[in-house]
């Protein structure tokens, strides 16, 4: 990959990290707040179904994970497993697609 590409990956990694910092905080606070008086599947679905706000929030969350995790894994694979080059990047592209798929599948399951 060119230095420009590497620099763009770095920017994407930092930007997605900033998003994740907000998303994780909101997610954790929501969980703690929501389970105060016990939690049931019905309660979750009641809050999430048809809510465009929560749908947007969790879609952004999934997108940030999709960007952030493969870039981090890229360094781990090259430094600890010695896997570099196009084959690694292609595998990570599939990994990103997999994360997006299972993430959005979960989001749609509770919002649709």
């Amino acid at each position: 990959m060119t230095f420009r590409g590497e620099a763009r990956l770095w920017i994407a990694q930092r930007a997605s990290a900033a998003l994740l910092a907000v998303c994780v905080a909101v997610h954790l606070v929501t969980i703690i707040y929501a389970v105060r008086s016990g939690l049931s599947a019905a309660e979750i679905l009641e809050r999430t179904r048809g809510s465009p706000g929560w749908f947007a929030f969790y879609s952004v969350f999934v997108l940030a994970v999709t960007v952030h995790a493969p870039i981090g894994l890229r360094s781990v694979l090259s430094e600890w497993a010695g896997w570099r080059g196009r084959s690694r990047d292609l595998a990570l592209l599939f990994f990103a697609a997999f994360l997006a798929w299972i993430g959005m599948r979960a989001v749609l399951a509770v919002f649709a």
Binding site: M1, F3, E6, A7, L9, W10, S75, S78, R84
Partner: peptide, 14 residues
């Protein structure tokens, strides 16, 4: 900046 960017340069630093 070109010489120090990328996987062998500053972006490799953790």
């Amino acid at each position: 900046l070109r010489a120090v960017a990328g996987d062998a340069g500053c972006h490799a630093c953790h």
